[in-house]
Amino acid sequence: MAKQYDVLFRLLLIGDSGVGKTCLLCRFTDNEFHSSHISTIGVDFKMKTIEVDGIKVRIQIWDTAGQERYQTITKQYYRRAQGIFLVYDISSERSYQHIMKWVSDVDEYAPEGVQKILIGNKADEEQKRQVGREQGQQLAKEYGMDFYETSACTNLNIKESFTRLTELVLQAHRKELEGLRTRASNELALAELEEEEGKPEGPANSSKSCWC
């Protein structure tokens, strides 16, 4: 039987509530767009297999709830990700301002070497725009991220941004991939690899166990 995929990894979507994370994802995996989506509570999942540079990559995408209160929960998922989309809404200045906070959370909770990409969504709503394209570019440059303005509604840059983040993750794991080419039979589950390493419960607990 043909292999279903060569590499498996996880991408995470984060950003304020209502910036369109779920819509981006639905457009990417199902090529669908609904203007009135049901709110995401906790975390939702989708999956898609794409081919990048001749490698079949299966990506699991974790779509998180955006409300600040939920971040205690969603932060727990950062360490299980290899790539993260930071999403704001070009028609909401506030969602853009919050990106800084999202980035610092990622720095704190995500594994080292996690790949990030900045997304300014709802690019079709030009008449409501509050955040200029240059502002997005500027912020992305500051943090050393790639940047896309996207629209789930008009299907602008959706495939491009998902493919780009996938490429970045693949590049970051080039070493493991070399191994894959030599032992051509096995698939590589980056997701599981990192999980094994990350098992000891995360920073909060380790500091606690220190002082007893």
């Binding site: 509530s17 209502g18 009135s36 989506h37 049901i38 709110s39």
Partner: peptide, 16 residues
């Protein structure tokens, strides 16, 4: 303010 806005947003996304 954020919370009041979120209520508005979420109502539109409750059993749409």
């Amino acid at each position: 303010e954020a919370s009041l806005e979120l209520i508005k947003l979420d109502i539109s996304r409750t059993f749409p």
